[in-house]
Design a protein around this nucleic acid. Sequence first.
DNA 1: ATTCAAAAGATGACCAGTCGTCTACATCTC
DNA 2: GAGATGTAGACGACTGGTCATCTTTTGAAT
Lengths: 201, 201
Amino acid sequence: MAKKDIRERIVEAASHRFHEFGYNATGIQDIVDAAKIPKGSFYAHFKSKEALGLEVLSDDARDTEATLTLNDETSPVERLREHFNILVSDYHRLKYRSGCLIGDFASELASNPNFRQATLHHHSEWSNNLEAVIRQGQARGEIDASRDSGVLARYLLDSFLGAVLRSRIARSQDAYDDFLEVCFDILLVKGPTASPMATKK
Amino acid sequence: MAKKDIRERIVEAASHRFHEFGYNATGIQDIVDAAKIPKGSFYAHFKSKEALGLEVLSDDARDTEATLTLNDETSPVERLREHFNILVSDYHRLKYRSGCLIGDFASELASNPNFRQATLHHHSEWSNNLEAVIRQGQARGEIDASRDSGVLARYLLDSFLGAVLRSRIARSQDAYDDFLEVCFDILLVKGPTASPMATKK
DNA sequence: ATTCAAAAGATGACCAGTCGTCTACATCTC
DNA sequence: GAGATGTAGACGACTGGTCATCTTTTGAAT
């Protein structure tokens, strides 16, 4: 077994467990059991549980980022919609048992300086990307240009993370449906004349 | 020391720790140290750590609920604003180190059936209350009646919980400022003519 | 190409500490 | 004194991490 393969198995096993059970409720033994490696080997690949956690968080953020197209000819609003739809379909596939690490680590590990800093960094990167696309939407007249793109982006991300929380306790798509409806019918719209939600039903 | 006083000290100590460090990172020893009781006494008051956690969650939800006036002559929108302002001022007082248990338990304990169920229950109660007030706002013409009050309420709560997450990692008021701005300038407004955010700056 | 010693990597048993819980004993109350 | 209540510290399980020992790889010499 190549060293790289083992390392990736550890990361993958940890990622699954962190997503479903959280960081503190996931032990090293759980991870190495899932990765089918001896426990002592873990430390040949990672210095510590924390080092693994930070790497898994970083990978998660990178994967999330990849689902948002920053520069493209297509409609910025549609790109945003596609971004969230991809994320939501992942949660659906996992039967709404999985959280989002940025939200979960913000919640569970905010008192750990290293995690707090890393989580804040990734959160900001994400909302900056959302903002860039929103700004494009404003430039193309798809989104009301009188709205502060930064405020919108950050709010959007907050509400998405909140929707992830709800979906996990409810084990349901409802939170995402609500999220998509308000975002695309009220927030990310052309101007003061938002389309009424009632007519969507 | 009266038995009731000891019990309340345990609840208070646990509440603080759960809010700042989360459930799994808070041990019974931490709680009894903070409550200044012997560890063995804990089980004279609570059957288990889980029983304490559920009670602290319930207390937290009750306290939060008390900050929203459901029936009153005053403006529903202002009541909603006051509700969130009270919550935010608490977080400010605690230097943004505190989370919201409904959000945090949704994140950290979603895989525990008892916590998931209780958290979902309290989350729903909260959003139902928000919905009732939003509906009053719609009846009084303060909030666009073409919006689905249930969708709005749930979305609002999701976004607030997301703002709490951000405020904790950023240790800052920004998330709440963004939340209040979007909610009261875009979502909870009279009709299709939302006041532009740019003019608020 | 082969051999061998050194270096690097892997690992199972072990470590000290923490965890939530329990219970024998101590203390209190009536 | 009897019964109720409180509690110190033990318990068994688990935690993240260490390390002595074994295995594999590497690179130099022939």
